[in-house]
């Protein structure tokens, strides 16, 4: 009796686990299959390097080079802004603060990480975009820069927590022997801790890049969504926002519809590459 129950339970667990894993694989295969229909008509190379996105035009008019560039551009701007701030904060958290203050600041950063992206987009539209319009006297503040600024705030928590964690370990490792030498804390950090945490800093950067490129709502609300070659102060388009905005309108089964899947597929490939890079960097962090 008892062992029958055991066997049934074990089988249920196995079946559900198998189902979950197959489901995950199925999602990827499904996206691939739907994009394949498009790639049968337009070659993947033309799709990627072509300059024009016009859903109402011919097949050759569906290509996403400017959109890929826009996706990358916004994320890179975000990282350029967020890295120095994030690393600086991580240094303070891991070495300069008492436990109580550390906890409080970390709590605040966790909250920052928990704010939904649509709220970031909302504030970005009302504050960042307006600010750019007034101060740079732009006709429209929706731009790569606006997207980058909003995104930089969103990736800050990832950067801070990744760096903070490893810096804390490195600091614990060296602080005693270094203070025995009579060296100041700032000297220790600049000459040992920062160089030692190089890989973690790089890992946090790649992580942030991946997060940023997949981000939808916040970016979509502040970049103006025009599929043109991106300029820092001009409108742009990213792959996630392209899919969000056009999927509802695209006729099911049309070339436009499959092209949207294809762009999703390209995004997944890019992110897969980034994740592989991240995995590679992480496996070499030996703290």
């Amino acid at each position: 009796m008892r062992s029958l129950g055991e066997k049934i339970f074990e089988s249920i667990i196995k079946i559900i686990s198998l189902f979950s894993v197959l489901l995950l694989v199925f999602i990827v295969v499904f996206i691939f299959k739907e994009s394949l229909i498009f790639f049968n008509r337009v070659s993947i190379v033309d799709f990627i390097i072509g300059r024009k996105w016009n859903p109402l035009g011919a097949a050759e008019d569906l290509s996403i080079w400017p959109i890929i560039l826009g996706t990358v551009y916004v994320s890179i701007v975000a990282i350029l802004i967020a890295m120095p701030i994030g690393v600086g904060t991580a240094i303070v958290l891991s070495t300069y603060t008492s436990n109580r203050i550390k906890k409080a600041i970390r709590g605040g950063i966790d909250v920052l990480a928990g704010i939904p992206s649509v709220v970031y987009g909302f504030i970005g539209l009302l504050v960042v975009v307006k600010f750019l319009e007034i101060n740079l006297s732009l006709a429209a503040g929706e731009s790569v820069l606006a997207g980058g600024i909003v995104l930089s705030v969103m990736v800050l928590p990832f950067i801070i927590s990744t760096c903070d964690e490893s810096m804390e370990k490195i600091y614990e490792k060296y602080s005693q022997s270094s203070s025995a030498l009579g060296v100041s804390k700032s000297y220790l950090i600049r000459n040992i801790i920062l160089p030692e945490s190089k890989r973690s800093i790089l890992a946090s950067m790649v992580l942030a890049l991946g997060r940023g490129m997949g981000e939808t709502m916040a970016v979509m609300m502040v970049i103006g969504n025009a599929p043109i070659m991106p300029k820092l102060l001009g409108k742009t388009q990213t792959i996630p926002s392209l899919i969000t905005l056009e999927m509802g309108m695209a006729e099911v089964g049309s070339l436009h519809y499959h092209a949207l899947f294809a762009s999703g597929f390209v995004l997944m490939l890019i992110l897969l590459g980034i994740n592989a890079l991240l995995y590679f960097i992480k496996s070499r962090i030996n703290v």
Partner: peptide, 24 residues
């Protein structure tokens, strides 16, 4: 293998999941 698949999945952007959810 399962760890690898789960980890890849956590990197898939939510809009792609939305796309799958919508179509499938």
């Amino acid at each position: 293998l399962i760890h690898l698949i789960t980890q890849c999945m956590s990197g898939v952007p939510s809009i792609i999941l939305g796309l799958f959810g919508y179509t499938f």
